[in-house]
Computed example of a mutant assay.
Amino acid sequence: MLLYPVFGIFLTGVIMMYVVIDPVKALNEGLKHWLSGMGTANLVLLGAVLGGMMAVDMGGPINKAAYTFGLAMIEAGNFAPHAAIMAGGMVPPLGLALATTFFKKKFTKAEREAGKTCYIMGASFITEGAIPFAAADPVRVIPSIIVGSAVAGALTMWFHIGLPAPHGGIFVIPIVKGSAWLYILAILIGSIVTALMVGLWKKEVEE
């Protein structure tokens, strides 16, 4: 109970120090130079891809792959990708919260109540708030949140927004690089796109 954790942590530290750090550092530098050489159109496309990835599985492996990439870019000094990633991660719960508010007949009473919680979860960058809605109606909800998140991610790149904070949702908006108002606008537009798609696509429920 004592030795296994100690040696396990020691071995992990040795591997990180002498095996992992140099290749990852080289990869980060390469990504940094690649991103700095991209034109606006390519950056917008990258933002759409990263934003959309955040909504595909709402906290699963694809979501985490995008998030990890964003963290690596922060470490490399490029804050734009993570701005797109956080915007994309906030949109699914926020979009569904708006949908439950403005398309009440399309949701059960329990879903409308859950929608109120999604306002808080979305504002806090907790994408998992969308999971119950996606599980209940994956065919309509998942494409809607992916599109909304992709729109938000693309817009953050278009607006040249950067974010040096790894987490925080609305609480870190004051420290964004670029216009905080445009960042909020990008998130709102993406959320509205999701809300409209879900609201128009879903059928009315019978309670």
Rank of each mutant, 00 (worst) to 15 (best):
L188C: 14
G169L: 09
H160Y: 08
F159G: 01
L188F: 13
M157F: 10
L200G: 13
A195T: 11
G168H: 12
I175P: 04
V176F: 06
I175W: 05
V172P: 00
W181R: 07
L182V: 10
Y183R: 01
L182C: 09
I161D: 01
S179G: 08
L185K: 08
G199T: 12
P164M: 04
A186L: 01
A180S: 15
A195E: 03
A195F: 03
A195W: 02
I173N: 00
A195H: 05
I173V: 14
A180T: 14
I173D: 05
K177L: 13
K177Y: 13
M157H: 10
G178E: 03
W181C: 00
A195R: 07
A186K: 02
I170E: 01
I175A: 07
F171P: 00
G178R: 02
G178W: 02
V172K: 00
S191M: 09
I175D: 00
V176K: 02
F159Q: 00
A186N: 01
V198C: 01
P166T: 14
I184D: 04
I184G: 00
I184N: 05
I192C: 08
I184R: 06
H167A: 11
M197T: 11
I170R: 06
L196H: 13
A195L: 04
I161M: 06
Y183A: 06
A180Y: 13
L196Y: 14
F159W: 07
M157A: 09
V176M: 02
V176C: 04
I161Q: 04
L182A: 11
G199C: 09
V193F: 05
K177G: 11
V172R: 01
G169M: 10
A186H: 04
L185V: 14
Y183L: 06
A180K: 13
W158Y: 15
G178Y: 04
G190L: 03
H160Q: 12
I184Q: 02
A180R: 11
A165S: 11
I161L: 10
I189V: 15
I189L: 11
W181G: 08
A186M: 02
I173C: 03
G199K: 09
G169F: 09
F159H: 04
L163M: 13
S179T: 12
M197Y: 08
K177P: 03
I170L: 14
I189P: 00
K177M: 14
W181S: 11
I184V: 15
F171D: 06
L188R: 06
P174Q: 07
L185H: 07
V176A: 07
M197V: 11
I161K: 00
I170A: 07
G162E: 05
I170G: 03
L182Y: 11
A186P: 04
L188P: 01
I175H: 05
V198T: 11
W158E: 12
V198W: 00
Y183W: 07
W201H: 07
L185T: 13
L200P: 07
L196A: 15
I189A: 06
F159V: 08
P174D: 05
S179H: 06
G178D: 06
